[in-house]
Design a protein around this nucleic acid. Sequence first.
RNA 1: GGACGCUUAGCUCAGCUGGGAGAGCAACGGCCUUACAAGCCGUGGGUCGCAGGUUCGAUCCCUGCAGCGUCCACCA
Length: 876
Amino acid sequence: MAKELSSRINPAEYESSVYEFWLEKNLFHADEKSEKPGYSIVIPPPNVTGVLHMGHALDETIQDILARFKRLKGFEVLWLPGMDHAGIATQNVVEKQLAKEGKTRHDLGREAFIERVWEWKAKYGGGILKQLRALGSSCDWERARFTMDEGLSKAVREVFYTLYHEGLIYRSNNYMVNWCVRCHTALSDLEVDFQERDDFLYHLRYPIEGEDGFVTIATTRPETYLGDTAVAVHPGDERFARLIGKNVILPVINRKIPVIADEFVETEFGTGCVKITPAHDHNDFEVGRRHNLETITCIDDNGLIMPGFCDSFTGLDRNEARKVVVEKFRELGLLGEVTPLRHNVGCCQRCSSVVEPMVSMQWFVKVKPLAEKAVQAVREGKTRIIPKTWENTYFEWMNNIRDWCISRQIWWGHRIPAWYCDKCGHITVAKTDPDKCEKCGSAEIHQETDVLDTWFSSSLWPFSTMGYPEKTETLKKFYPTSALVTGFDILFFWVARMMMMGIKFMGDVPFRDVYLHALVRDEHGQKMSKSKGNVIDPLIMIEKYGADAFRFALAVFTAQGRDIKLNPDRIEGYRNFINKIWNAARFILMNMGDSAPALDRENLADEDKWILTKLEKTAKKVSSSIEGYAFNEGASELYQFFWMTFCDWYLEIIKERLFKGEGKSKEQAAATAAFVLEKSMIAMHPYIPFVTEHIYKALTGRETIMYETYPDGLDFGFEQAESAIDNAIELINLVRNIRGEYNIAPGAWLELYITSSDSGKLSDFEKASGIVKKAARVSEIHVNAAAPEDSASGVGTGFEIKIPLAGAIDTEEERARLEKEKKAAEKDFALYGGKLKNQRYLEKAPAEVVEKDRKTFEEAKAKLEKINEALSRLRK
RNA sequence: GGACGCUUAGCUCAGCUGGGAGAGCAACGGCCUUACAAGCCGUGGGUCGCAGGUUCGAUCCCUGCAGCGUCCACCA
């Protein structure tokens, strides 16, 4: 096996076959009848129209780390995948496709159009789920769900029915909604993005009734003057006090409207007079309510000026109408200043066209009562939000929540299960399609044409995917889910709404933990977007560096609460790490014989005990890091341990035993290396599943790593050997340092003189002399003996070394080196000396801190003495 | 306007409940040492944004300021 492995890793050679193997053996399957404790995650369902981007990649990587980790910790893990039907987005995609054929959805009609969407879905949709496999995602694919599936639709129906009959869903035309004239539908407040636009602020003069003067208002939307029903001024504004109660005349259409006083007017902005258009502005709508103003709609669903105002305006697009209206005012001498104005404009999240506020008949969810419980659940700790700082944002939004407009005037989605009676007007809301009005019994009923907001079905995801409204075994075992992993950008859209629905319909929160990760940005911190051309494609990264390297990089970059600036070059470093693992495995496989010898506690060398202890500590740290969602900490621990500790030190140390040793010494070196390799593979498996599985199989001959035991329970009790080797390493570093500074040929053998009064240390060195000799290339070690005069010196903790350089010694260089060391020692000497003289410090600081500082001081003092001695010898 | 976050080595960032700052990359010097040059050994580099305060002691806690960023609300 080992000989077949090449020295450069090629992930393409094994990643897909390893994944195929997992699938074949059905290793991702979750069994609700299992005796093991359950652990569950539902995937944030990507849009059916979606392609894998960095956000998904991060999201999936984290979830997979959790899922694989929990399997290794003995849980029955359900990671449930699926997709969202993404109403508006998907409809837009299919409509664009139709447009290429010169058709609109209306040419097809509703039924045929929906059929067309399903066809589209079958052909193009869901590619993203396949892409997730390239990442190594261990989802239970057989359970994949789609929000428009029969079962999920049933859940939607059940929930709608219940909420309606409890009065928590209602229909009303008494609110202002956000209307997209392009998508031709209402939008919820959340689906409106505010974008900066360059516009103009127009001053328009409205003649005052019965006087010669004007009231000059300032507006960015002259075309809506057709719907004006008042002009408002601030009640305290003395400039206009006399006008309050008078009327002004709207030019051209000659409508008489009152001047009213309202606090919302800013006296500083514009002219201090505001036109009020209750039908087409959120604020104006509120003003209209306060003052009982008429609501006159002047722009229709398509954004065109409605008839009945002025024939020359009728049918104009609202943007066109703006120019025409302004021109008209100019002609009449009623146009004042026109100044450029940069301001925020509400735009459709899906198509970016400017949203038209309108009053129209829509369906709403009364969210307050649901939100209160969702807030309470977080306050009581039933659901934890991680990082905690997001809790505030969550509370803030929940406490100021407005009713949720859930009806959409599109075709693709869950059609609202309400039937209007043509006879008596009653609305029948039923779980199964009714054939007559439940009130008057008339068969002349027709179903609501609107569909539900996509997020309505998404909000049921944690339980609709598990079989709700049936009481399934899956729900019993896996609800509430253990963790939800998602970006903070959909905290309101999704997380908050799932909280409300989960509590309402399942009687318990939908998840115990919510882990909100950062956004992935490009290397300059810019949001990735197609238009900026700075999108990094995860699949290309995987192809280039392998999924393991890519995942590991993402995990390292994920610090809680900070955006990730992704520089693709950095992934290369982790590709190198995977390569390192690969080569370490090759090395161990080559040197261990046919199969790894068993670890024999009684015959371990100190370095074996040392590495086992380091392994033990690393696994514990990684384990608790993952438990605490500190994925970057776990990743760095593993990186440091495997590369620096295991490869650079341990494997180098045991080469002597592997190559030239015999018997137990050789055997146990191989046994320890193989043992540590195996456990490291398990410890790293959640992060880098492919290479670890691949190596594990080659190493152990066992079938899969996936259901191994995480090595955080190791307990060897080898602390003494650990510190002995740590000491030896300090000694070796000191020798290497001198070698480097003197530019001594790496191959040259040196003699080493050690002096120390610490017998423990000396005995550690004695025991580790073989290691020291090999690692530092030392031919002979003299203990507490006088060294020749022309020696380089080095001072360690509690010991001093000298290396005879036989003429090679450069006094100046040596002095410079010692002076540098002296400076460091002097700094410590002064600092800690000062501290220890401070009476208040001695009184107030904890004893162990003082003790530690005293020790550091003593060491600094001893070092300083030794260095001074060395320096004075040099001067002679 | 409201809220939150960030500012640490040339770059990208760690630094968990306060006890004298770390990693990776880059740079520099030296190595083809038979697992790995995608490697090995060594070195340099930081007034922890600025100013105060609390404390025996502050990168860490508090206040103010500056710069950057995000979210919410949106002044017509």
